[in-house]
Simulated scan of single mutants.
Amino acid sequence: MATNTKRKESMADRVYEALKDDIFEFRLIPGDKFSEGDVGTRLHASRTPVREALYRLQREGYVEVLFRSGWQVKPFDFQQVEELYDLRITLERAAMHKICGLAEQPQALRMLTAIWNPDHPSERAVGSTVRALDESFHCDLVAAAGNREMTQIHREITDRLRIIRRLDFTRVDRVDATYVEHAAILEALRSSMATEAADRLTRHIRASQKAVREITMERIREAAEAHRQSPVESEQQPTSQGA
């Protein structure tokens, strides 16, 4: 019995990861509709793990259930994204001031400085590694401020923005800018220049926000065009039935 339960959980995890990857890579675009049967057929999974995976994605805000008509990839709510970015900036600016008010500089500053001030450009991270490092940079700075509630709320915002923030590192110029801007923020913090650090951080986040919005819209347009130009392929991909 335990073995069967574990097997179901494992299949649900695989279905979850496959669907999430489809959404992140825009093989499923916002507004695409599909049924549990479609997913099960494509991924060779029974209804129970498929449903578990979809409910998990629903809780995380990636899909929504449609009354009597299956599921849908949740359309982007850019107003909500703007509001989440505003809240994120408010929390991170507060963290800058708290860090500069500490009696001793947190060890996190030294560790982050080593990462974002490499001796040579060839030592910079790439791909998924730099995405993970960027997320850690912001989360670690907030955590270094020492407010656990602030840290928890910030992590929840980070989770909700991950689907679009990751696109910021699909362009080389954005990776270069991230290294330069992170280093500048850390320099201001080490000099206990709270307002300067907060202002640099705000400009950095707003530049990233603008870039990811542009990239997101471009990806959605490209994916929608591919759907229109390849109707045969769309029919062969049962998880994607169009917006």
Rank of each mutant, 00 (worst) to 15 (best):
R42D: 02
L43Y: 15
L43V: 03
L43H: 05
H44K: 12
A45F: 02
T48Y: 01
V50I: 06
V50K: 01
V50L: 01
R51D: 11
E52S: 07
E52Q: 10
Y55H: 13
Y55T: 04
Y55N: 13
R56I: 05
L57A: 04
Q58C: 08
R59Q: 14
R59A: 13
E60K: 12
E60W: 06
G61F: 07
G61R: 04
Y62M: 10
V63N: 02
V63A: 03
E64T: 10
E64I: 09
V65C: 08
V65Q: 15
L66M: 10
L66S: 02
L66W: 00
L66T: 03
L66C: 02
G70V: 11
G70T: 10
W71I: 09
V73A: 07
K74M: 14
K74E: 12
K74A: 13
D77H: 07
F78P: 10
F78L: 13
F78S: 06
Q79F: 01
Q79N: 11
Q80N: 13
Q80V: 06
V81K: 13
E82F: 07
E82R: 15
E83V: 03
E83T: 10
L84I: 07
Y85G: 04
D86M: 10
D86W: 04
D86Q: 14
D86S: 13
L87D: 11
R88H: 09
L91W: 09
R93H: 11
A94R: 10
A94C: 11
A94E: 15
K98R: 15
I99V: 13
I99H: 01
C100R: 04
C100I: 10
C100G: 06
C100W: 06
Q105Y: 04
P106R: 05
Q107N: 12
R110Q: 08
R110I: 00
M111L: 13
